[in-house]
């Protein structure tokens, strides 16, 4: 297992290295980095200073090394719009987006898996049918419209929850987060639900399909033939097997949740990376776009790594075939 993790870590490092090369090629080698990284409003003096600072007067390999060096120092240029370091800008918004994405995924898993399990075990019951019909709605409603409806209903009509913004964050063990204050949580609920609805439907359907498939397999029948209680047959024999496809999908979807967050963050004025990137694209704030790309790629790599490790924990066949390889 340790060997497995170390190998996956090394692979991740290689991917990051390749990624920096690609970003470098995209920004420095193909385009004119002066135009990409330095605002057009800059004066000649500012330009010259920036060119020298970014090392744009040197050869390409030297520039790449300099780029790597700057990257390690966290310097990806300065936002044209905010005048702050681009990476810092993105990272400031990072926790807000992660809060949103995490809450949405937690909702999707903790609601989707039990409902899917129920629908899979009792496909012909009224409850099972209702769940499946409900999941179709989750799939078909447009995200922004659904967000507006949530705001209308819970914020405007019922006035239970705030309509947008992030609220006051609480602090716990030195970590500042919306999770640790009621105001923060109340601001988080609607956007998280909005982001979660689609994923919940997906998890419900995937869980149900996996349960229906697994439940008829010989090893489940054999487990019952041993005289095991249904709770153990379902809770261990069935669940542990359906976790394998579930973890894969949830990992993949985590990435797409962050991408989808753009719409939700816009509708709910949630100050996350999604909103920042949309604003930056409109304003051609290129250093921020580059920083965003790098952060997202690193995030995807991390998620993939975690999924791979979970996968190996869940499925002994993966672990062993990897050791042999």
């Amino acid at each position: 297992m340790t060997v497995f993790i170390i190998r996956r870590l090394l692979q991740s490092v290689i991917v990051v290295a390749v990624m920096t090369l690609l970003v470098f090629a995209g920004v420095y080698a193909i385009g004119n980095p002066v135009e990409i990284l330095i605002s057009q409003d800059a004066t000649e003096v500012e330009r010259a200073a920036a060119i020298a600072r970014l090392g744009l007067d040197k050869s390409l390999p030297e520039q790449y090394l300099a780029f790597l060096g700057n990257l390690l120092k966290g310097d990806l240029g300065t936002s044209f719009v905010f005048g702050e370091p681009a990476l810092q800008l993105v990272l400031e918004r990072f926790p807000a987006t992660m809060e949103l994405a995490l809450s949405a995924m937690l909702i999707a898993v903790f609601i989707g898996v039990p409902l899917g399990l129920y629908a899979g075990l009792r496909p012909d019951s009224i409850g099972g049918r209702t769940i499946m019909t409900g999941s179709i709605f989750g799939f078909s409603l447009p995200n922004f419209w659904q967000g507006l409806m949530l705001i209308m209903f819970f914020a405007v009509i019922l006035q239970w929850l705030p309509a947008g913004g992030r609220g006051v964050r609480g602090e716990f063990l030195g970590i500042e987060s919306s999770f640790f204050s009621w105001d923060g949580i109340s601001h988080l609920i609607l956007p998280a639900i909005n982001l979660a609805l689609f994923k919940t439907s997906l998890v419900i359907r995937l869980t149900r399909a996996s349960v229906r498939e697994t439940i008829n397999l010989d090893y489940v029948k054999f487990a019952r033939a041993k005289g095991l209680r249904p709770r153990r047959v379902i809770g261990l024999h069935v669940l542990k097997n359906i976790m394998i496809p579930l973890v894969t999908i949830i990992g993949l979807e985590f990435g797409s949740v962050i991408a989808f967050a753009v719409v939700t963050e816009t509708v709910f004025a949630w100050p996350g990376m999604g909103k920042l990137i949309i604003d930056s694209i409109f304003q051609l704030d290129r250093p921020v776009i580059v920083a965003y790309l790098i952060v997202i790629v690193c995030l995807f790599i991390t998620v993939n790594l975690v999924v791979d490790i979970l996968y190996a924990i869940l499925d002994p066949r993966v672990r062993l075939s990897d050791q042999k390889a």
Partner: peptide, 9 residues
């Protein structure tokens, strides 16, 4: 090949 659960020891 099918009677034992593949993910349990």
């Amino acid at each position: 090949m099918m009677t034992l659960n593949p993910v349990l020891r």
